[in-house]
């Protein structure tokens, strides 16, 4: 099992944090452009899902799967978006994303007065904690 990479977006589409562990394929565009492309895709998927859904959606989009990887998506009510790419074998990544939000983001970004919200996260401590959480999870 592998975890490929992680994106965190703010509610207005700024890339707050990006990290990668096992990434073989570079998209061939700059990180900035890639983030925009990713956010645009997620935004479209969200509206696509709410329109095509036969019943009233509550959480909406959860994940999509391709032949090589699975993209897991978690959006908090405040609009923060966590996107994690793993291989297709990983199950129930949602718990991990929730952990990432409640145990790492809240603790080391929201509770850090020096971290500006809606701006890319610079904190070294946050980076270490994300890395530790991902590397110690059973999916890595």
């Amino acid at each position: 099992m592998t975890i490929h990479n992680l994106y965190i977006f703010s509610r207005n589409g700024t890339l707050l944090y990006y990290s990668e562990w096992n990434r073989l394929n570079k998209s061939g565009i700059t990180m900035e452009e890639e983030a925009k492309l990713m956010y645009g895709m997620l935004f479209s998927i969200k509206s696509f899902v709410s329109k095509i859904s036969p019943l009233d959606p509550k959480e909406g989009f959860l994940y999509y799967k391709t032949s090589k990887y699975t993209l897991h998506y978690l959006e908090t009510p405040s609009g923060l978006k966590f996107v994690l790419n793993t291989d297709n074998g990983a199950q129930n990544i949602r718990g991990l994303l929730q952990q990432l939000y409640s145990q790492v983001y809240l603790e080391y970004v929201v509770k850090n007065p020096l971290c500006q919200l809606n701006e890319p996260i610079q904190s070294e401590l946050f980076k270490q904690k994300v890395d530790a959480l991902i590397k110690h999870s059973q999916y890595f």
Partner: peptide, 26 residues
């Protein structure tokens, strides 16, 4: 385009587009 972008943003080479997309209702 969602299908196409999903394969472009893939972390693995030679990847297909979206095969399964899950939401809470479908």
């Amino acid at each position: 385009p969602l299908f196409a972008i999903a394969s472009q943003l893939s972390p693995e080479p030679r990847c297909s587009g979206i095969e399964v997309l899950e939401a809470d209702t479908f």
